[in-house]
């Protein structure tokens, strides 16, 4: 620990500015985004930064209800979309926003862009989805881990795991074979990510590079979000290792 903490952060408080920072990773399953966020979390904690992690579809309150519906394969794309929005809003209202106000670094494994991509593929109106999520603050950095669909799919399907109905996109009637359906579904999500990448200001990362190299690049980008004194220290550390 470097003995620095966010309480001593210079308090620049303009009305709309949150003291904390929001860092997001996006990408298809198997793109390696979660391990990158995990390593970033370790690094920030080592630097003494206050960190909070939040993951897509993980609100305890909403989870139970969503999974009941999922088990019975009853969800239409609109309901599915709104349940994920509910989950998002619960985490946002309960944790993300208060902690950003309090000066935390909030690390989000998937954010609104996952909804934009998946819901569009499922046939929801893209503008409607954007309006639903319009309350969400814009992240300070969005790292998009790009991998060719075959790479992501291979990483997930090695060992032929049992895919869940919605995970495989079976509700879209893409194919009767769940692995084939999964592959088509993932490739459509990649198309959506690609289409929004420049407009949403994604930092596009090559998810086929080795993990350490990617992490180094990520940390270099995050340096700019740290308070200047801490950034200096962290930067020195980065150049030594």
């Amino acid at each position: 620990m470097l003995g620095w903490n966010c309480h001593k952060m210079p308090r620049v408080r303009t009305r709309n500015k949150l003291r904390g920072k929001l860092i997001v990773v996006e990408g298809i399953d198997g793109s390696g985004k979660s391990i990158q966020l995990h390593l970033l979390d370790k690094w920030l904690r080592h630097l003494g930064v206050l960190v909070f992690n939040t993951e897509w579809n993980s609100s305890a309150v909403v989870k139970e209800i969503t999974s009941k519906g999922k088990r019975r394969a009853l969800l239409t794309p609109t309901t599915f979309s709104l349940l994920h929005a509910t989950d998002f809003a619960d985490r946002y209202e309960r944790n993300v926003l208060p902690l950003l106000h309090a000066g935390y670094f909030v690390l989000a494994d998937r954010y609104v862009y996952t909804a934009y991509a998946r819901d569009a593929v499922r046939g929801c109106h893209p503008q409607w989805v954007k309006r639903v999520y319009s309350f969400a603050t814009k992240p300070d950095a969005v790292f998009y881990y790009h991998v060719p669909v075959e790479v992501g799919v291979r990483r997930i399907l090695t060992g032929r795991p049992k895919l869940k109905y919605y995970e495989a996109g079976m509700d879209l009637n893409l194919s009767n074979d769940e692995y084939e359906s999964y592959r088509i579904f993932q490739s459509r999500i990649i198309e959506q990510y690609k289409a929004m990448a420049s407009k949403e200001g994604f930092i596009v990362m090559d998810g086929t590079l080795d993990v350490e190299q990617q992490q180094r690049m990520m940390r270099e980008r995050v340096l700019g979000l740290l308070p200047s004194e801490l950034a200096k220290v962290a930067s020195k550390e980065l150049s030594v290792t």
Partner: peptide, 16 residues
């Protein structure tokens, strides 16, 4: 529940 969460919950229920 927060007010946005609740609003979205009811909307999901309604959509169903």
């Amino acid at each position: 529940l927060g007010k946005k969460t609740l609003a979205l919950f009811y909307a999901a229920d309604f959509a169903d």
